[in-house]
Design a protein around this nucleic acid. Structure first.
Length: 599
RNA sequence: GGUUCAGUAGCUCAGUUGGAUUAGAGCAACAGCCUUCUAAGCUGUGGGUCCCGCGUUCGAGUCGCGGCUGAAUCACCA
């Protein structure tokens, strides 16, 4: 708000001083750099073009006008062509008074923005979730929270990939080597059980291929000729023909997997507004493709396979239906996109999917456009980088993955070790149990979300996740510290208690350096949120929360609160502390991280 | 080979729509701070060819072009 006032005033000043109207983008107001007096800074270089004066002189003239014009401004100074405005203390006192106990400070107006459908998670039902899925889920959830907090209407959807050749592999392995094993009989989580059979399939498949290769076939030939290849294909055809036995087996095994996923999702704090199943949507895709074929938008090869030619768009020819008439990945995605658009008519459809599918989404958008769906432009592929291990790549088939459930267990147990060591919360109690879960998951979530989604991450299972420094637990700790301080305060005399509606009468109060920085940082929260929403960037929120926590710890270290003898200063610092605690809590909530009151 | 993305301290990463003679955090290393509101904290020291070159600009880690390195992708897998 104040930033807008200063901007408007500066625009007017330039207009009346130099008779020129510059576009608003030229007026850059930024927080004043640390170490220089001031709260906000206008960069005046762009204005020198119309003032025909040196930057310093131009800054002086504009500074004079704006300071007279905007009542909140106390003074201005000019350094190197940067015009720094200092706001009156009363502005900051008002800011503190109005917002310190507002638990939703900085959020956008509800549903004032776009309607956004965001798809994430999208698991295959043939294996349990691993670290890569964790990144997907956390990004999806955090981006949803951020967009929603910024005032958009967000619909979270999950597209479960419950059909296809990969599922058939697990099914065949279970039939051949499963001995009717069930989650109950083996006391394994259902998704892990099914995943084990996927690995089992691959093991046998590899052996078969090797045998054939020894007989003189090339690798490709061997893969094609391996009996398991044919069996899987036949099973898929049967599945599409709705063969009763195949479908029954399929449903049973999928149920096992869903039960397992539910546990993992719940623990990760992930939820959805709507779940689609590819088994229920792929037919629509086939139909759309058939229509397009009839309209002559795409072509059929002599072997009956259907293709779209995107060479004019700089891509290749792309398969839409196999020669046996079954659908491929893109066929399904065409169907689900259409279904989703018709159901919600969103302004934007976001897909949180790994960067290995960038090409796929290019194809999807172009295909939909070709078919006449202009809303394909609303599709945004939020791609994120692979998670790599120090030990090499993760491959489900080969079992070299960091399993999501195990990872969470490990984080929790590490947290528990630290809790025991510290002895602040009694070991072995329910409280310690809950705290270790909260802290362990915070470490994991923060570790993943603080990195820009675009970047690929390196994960070292042994030593990657820390509990000190720029971490989730550090921020949680700061929150707990503040809560503890506030609890102590209200347990003391009345003069330390912040009643609801308490307002500080302190026009003349003087904020010290760190207090000013805290206020500015808090003031910046709405700006940060808006930008994070615009950029779909949980990392910006994580970074913000860290900076704020760090700042508060510095404040805490050398500024007395309860021991301050001046009652007004004491209360001001309590208010500031509460404000920071609320803000940390909100920021972390956006990342799907809970913060404890005690740790 | 084509396309897309990335390259910043020993390691993991920030770095705002280009902005301040000094490019920041954390980890690791070293030196301090617990009788005092929670030491999962705070303070300090060392550590840089922002991959290279050219260009645009008053100003480039940020934008453009060319190159180098790495990753992903270009499947009748999903």
């Amino acid at each position: 708000m104040i930033v807008k006032n200063i901007t408007d005033s500066a625009i007017n000043a330039v207009k009346s001083l130099y008779g020129a109207e510059l576009p608003a983008e030229q007026f850059v107001i930024q927080p004043t750099r640390e170490g220089i007096k001031g709260d906000f800074t206008l960069v005046v270089f762009p204005m020198t073009k119309v003032s025909h004066k040196a930057p310093a002189a131009t800054a002086e003239e504009i500074g004079e006008r704006v300071t007279n014009d905007v009542p909140e401004i106390e003074s201005y100074s000019v350094i190197n062509g940067f015009l720094n405005f200092t706001l009156k203390n009363s502005y900051w006192v008002d800011f503190l008074n109005e917002n310190y106990e507002n638990e939703t400070f900085g959020g956008g107006e509800k549903n004032s923005g776009d309607k956004i459908v965001i798809e994430f998670s999208s698991p295959n039902t043939n294996k349990p979730l691993h670290l890569g899925h964790v990144r997907n889920n956390l990004i999806g959830m955090a981006v949803s929270n951020i967009l929603s907090a910024a005032g958009n209407e967000v619909v979270k959807v999950n597209l479960v990939n419950d059909r296809g050749i990969h599922i058939c592999k697990s099914m065949i392995a279970w039939l051949k080597w499963g001995n009717c094993e069930t989650p109950e009989s083996s006391s394994k989580k259902g998704d892990h059980l099914v995943g084990d059979y996927y690995v089992e399939f691959d093991k046998h498949f590899k052996e078969d291929v090797k045998l054939l290769e020894n007989k003189g076939m090339t690798e490709d030939e061997a893969k094609e000729k391996a009996p398991l290849t044919n069996e899987t294909r036949q099973m898929l055809v049967k599945w599409e023909a709705e063969d009763k036995d195949v479908r029954a087996l399929w449903e049973m095994m999928n149920e096992w997997v869903y039960a397992g996923f539910d546990v993992t999702y719940k623990r990760l704090g992930v939820s959805f507004d709507k779940i689609y199943y590819e088994s229920q949507t792929y037919l629509l895709g086939k139909k759309v493709v058939a229509d397009a074929l009839q309209k002559g938008l795409i072509t059929k090869d002599p072997d009956n396979s259907v293709w779209i030619d995107l060479t004019n768009e700089g891509l290749d020819r792309k398969l839409l239906l196999r020669k046996d008439g079954t659908s491929v990945y893109i066929t399904q995605d065409i169907g689900t996109a259409l279904l989703r658009y018709n159901e919600f008519h969103p302004d934007k459809m976001i897909y949180v999917v790994g960067n290995e599918q960038i090409y796929h989404f290019d194809v999807l958008k172009l295909t939909l456009k070709r078919f006449g769906y202009d809303w394909a432009d609303f599709i945004y592929h939020l791609s994120y980088g692979m998670v790599e291990l120090t030990t090499g790549k993760m491959k489900s088939r080969e079992g070299t993955v960091v399993d999501a459930d195990e990872l969470m267990d490990e984080m929790k147990s590490t947290a528990m070790d630290i809790i025991r060591e510290q002895g602040k919360v009694e070991y072995g109690t329910r409280e310690a149990e809950d705290l270790s879960e909260m802290v362990g998951l915070a470490a994991l979530k923060y570790y993943i979300l603080k990195v820009d989604p675009k970047k690929q991450m390196l994960f070292n299972p042994a030593e990657s996740i820390d509990f000190n420094g720029n971490t989730g637990p550090f921020i949680q700790y700061t929150h707990a510290r503040i809560r503890s301080l506030l609890a102590r305060a209200s347990a003391q005399t009345e003069t330390n208690t912040l009643d609801n509606q308490f307002r500080l009468d302190g026009e003349d109060i003087v904020f010290n350096e760190v207090e000013q920085q805290l206020l500015r940082s808090l003031h910046d929260y709405p700006v940060m949120l808006e930008k994070a929403a615009k950029d779909y960037s949980p990392a910006q929120v994580a970074n913000y929360a860290f900076e704020l926590a760090k700042l508060y710890n510095r404040f805490y270290q050398d500024t007395p609160v309860l021991k301050e003898t001046d009652e007004r200063l004491r209360k001001m610092r309590l208010m500031l502390s509460l404000f920071v605690a609320n803000n940390i809590k909100n920021s972390m909530k956006l990342l799907g991280i809970n913060v404890p009151d005690k740790m």
